[in-house]
């Protein structure tokens, strides 16, 4: 009875909240913090760019680690590996493996260049994303990437993923 009372008292403290701890988030601070992007394009910012636009920034900011043609250098490749996924030496890259083009924007925006993340503005990011797609033969050199076109790019391995269907092992032993 006592604990019920306590819960009841707590329950009327604030509208819908039981503990009334924490504060309301303002629209501005949400906007400043929320950089999530979904494969349907939700969250992609305004801006645009083509592979041709991206060459300069790529060669200055990305090539050192990922190679001039995306073939890999200090770090892994961003192109290649098509048809390798079933072989003994699969090469998983944006071109051969990634299911969604929006992930490239999201990831480059939040994490690249590795030693200076957040350096690129939206136009520069759309441009290097377009270049990576172009180097993989997925879009043309002049195809513009923006919040509308990027989610529509069909990645070669879009249908290559399956749900977790384990347990596929582990039946009882005698």
């Amino acid at each position: 009875m006592r604990s019920l009372l306590v819960v009841f008292v707590l329950g009327v403290c604030a509208f819908g909240q039981k503990y009334n701890v924490g504060r309301a988030a303002s629209a501005d601070e949400i906007k400043a913090t929320d950089q999530f992007m979904a494969p349907d394009g939700t969250g992609l910012p305004a801006g645009k760019g083509t592979a041709a636009d991206g060459r300069d920034i790529y060669s200055r900011r990305c090539a050192r680690c990922h190679g001039a043609q995306g073939q890999g250098d200090e770090e892994g490749p961003l192109v290649g590996g098509k048809g390798s996924l079933k072989t003994a030496k699969p090469l998983k890259t944006v071109g051969s493996f990634w299911p969604y083009a929006t992930t490239i924007y999201d990831y480059v925006h939040r994490a690249m260049p590795f030693d200076n993340p957040g350096l690129l503005d939206a136009n520069q990011t759309y441009s290097v994303v377009a270049l990576i797609l172009h180097m993989n033969g997925i879009i043309g050199e002049r195809d513009e990437m923006n919040a509308q076109t990027l989610p529509k790019v069909k990645m070669p391995n879009r249908d290559g993923f399956v749900k977790d269907n384990r347990p596929d092992t582990g039946k009882k032993k005698k």
């Binding site: 996924l85 699969p90 493996f97 994490a111 290559g160 977790d164 092992t169 582990g170």
Partner: peptide
């Protein structure tokens, strides 16, 4: 959201070339 670490990484490539995704539980 299909982030890099749930598509490019932390997906499990199978012999037929498909990959399992969102294989969260550790057996």
């Amino acid at each position: 959201n299909q982030t890099k670490d749930e598509t490019s990484k932390y997906t499990d490539l199978l012999a037929d070339g498909t990959a399992r995704q969102f294989t969260f539980v550790m057996d």
